[in-house]
Design a protein around this nucleic acid. Structure first.
Lengths: 268, 268
DNA sequence: TGCCCGGCTTGATCCACATCAACACGGCAG
DNA sequence: CTGCCGTGTTGATGTGGATCAAGCCGGGCA
């Protein structure tokens, strides 16, 4: 079997997930994908939504030179743990990760889900140790961006500096969105908001906005939204009964986007 | 009356608040303080906890040159509003501000309180418009730091760049702390945590960690902690009955720091 | 094949906090 | 002085979601 490397990867980057999602072992391209760590930002199809966004070709190559592509993470494997030395931030190449903190009494607060093209680990910058843990929800690949190099490069490339400031700022506004959601919204509204968030993030990656497989468990959803598993489950059932959503375990189909938006009642 | 300018300001910076808090019009120094916008980072007593932290003398002077000191904000006056063009971030010089978002149905989510030495407005970087509003809870003075200048300067001064990255990261970790608080902790724990937070922030500014006046109303506290006024009030009463706290309207005295920590049950 | 186990759903009951309502207090304008 | 309003407290009642409990389903493994 002959493979056009650049091109295969161009699409395969994300396909790793799609393939996994569909649960069909498209052996050849999957294997190819997980073993070739030599992708570059220049030919990554996520470049337009990831860190290289808005960079010139030359700049992308420089950025590329500091990025390390590590071997894939298995499901449930940690990328880093709370308290670990902070060295790098990470870009998700394929798969999904969750970031979470463990409270003293052992409960878990999920602080975010990270899809391909998204950056995680920025909470470690302030204290030089990671403030949360990150583990993969399915087989995943990440690009490691050593922070020291990123800092140096940022000082030389105004666009990159700006963009990284913006990324951190976005993390802040998203956290604030979650704060509002947790403190002001009902269980229905919370779950609806999460579904919409996943839907738009899928769309950004040119995937279906109405059909997708949830990479996270009900427990994870609960720990993210401040609800118990039971409540999450009940909300899904209710939504299904109202014909807003079709839920088949982790397989989701949004049947009525408008009423889902209504339930979430968010302007943003 | 003869005034030693540098020295007066050295202490007056923060005194504006203390004076206001004590509700006694120490005319001379207050007037001096509020009308002299020509303080510099070099002689600001907050320098050690504010943006200049860890900068060399030369660098502080450069930073100083881009900072604008505006005239004081009256109580309840807005520093910026959600949706405003983003131009600058702000350092609190005296007084306290709250940042908040208004939900579509008109309710208010307070996302943070900002005390002297703290930086606010960073949530505006990502979209070039402020993602939240900020208003003063009492007479306050701020330093305006035009972001464009800060960016340029950051590219030249690695320490500043690093420090600003750290500041944004700290905002992220604090938001995540709040997320956890809102989703996992009881009303008692939430209020106790806030009291401890204010206490430590006071200590950082060399003020009493056990006696202070709350700059914010019960409503604000409720809107920050995701509770109603009534609940906040009841928690205060309960704490008072348990001899952890003495509460006289906004005047707080922490009587038993340890049991307050116990109630908050936070490792951090 | 049968068993176990982890993830999910559904029902019954409980409880922390919201909601509603009344009142206390202090500042301020008339 | 009186009345009003904004802010805070306290009590009575209601409710959304937690908790407890049971059962379902599918996958892995002996």
């Amino acid at each position: 079997m002959k493979i056009d490397y650049t091109d295969t990867f161009d699409t395969a980057t994300d396909n790793l997930m799609t393939i996994h999602l569909a649960d069909q072992g498209e052996g050849a391209s999957l294997r190819h994908c997980t073993h070739d760590y030599q992708v570059s930002c220049g030919n990554c199809r996520l470049a337009s939504i990831c860190l290289p966004l808005a960079l010139e070709q030359d700049d992308i190559e420089q950025l590329d030179s500091i990025i390390q592509r590590s071997k894939p993470l298995q499901k449930s494997q940690h990328l880093y743990r709370e308290g670990d030395d902070f060295q790098s931030v990470f870009a998700v190449r394929s798969g999904t990760l969750k970031a979470y903190k463990t409270t003293d009494d052992g409960r878990e607060q999920v602080t975010g889900f990270y899809f391909p093209g998204e950056i995680l680990g920025m909470d470690g910058i302030s204290s030089n140790t990671h403030a949360s843990s990150a583990k993969s929800l399915e087989t995943a690949a990440v690009c490691e961006i050593p922070f020291a190099s990123l800092e140096k490069l940022s000082a030389l490339m105004p666009t990159l500096q700006r963009h990284f400031f913006q990324l951190m700022s976005r993390e802040i506004t998203e956290d604030q969105q979650l704060i509002t959601l947790l403190s002001k919204n009902s269980a229905d509204e919370r779950v609806a908001s999460l579904m919409l968030s996943i839907s738009t993030r899928n769309a950004r990656r040119k995937l279906s906005a109405t059909q997708f497989r949830l990479p996270m468990s009900r427990v994870d959803i609960g720990n993210y939204l401040g609800l118990t598993v039971e409540t999450v489950s009940r909300v899904f059932s209710r939504m299904q009964k109202m014909d807003m959503l079709k839920v088949d375990n982790k397989e989701i189909e949004i049947l009525d986007l408008d009423s889902l938006r209504g339930m979430a009642n968010l302007s943003s």
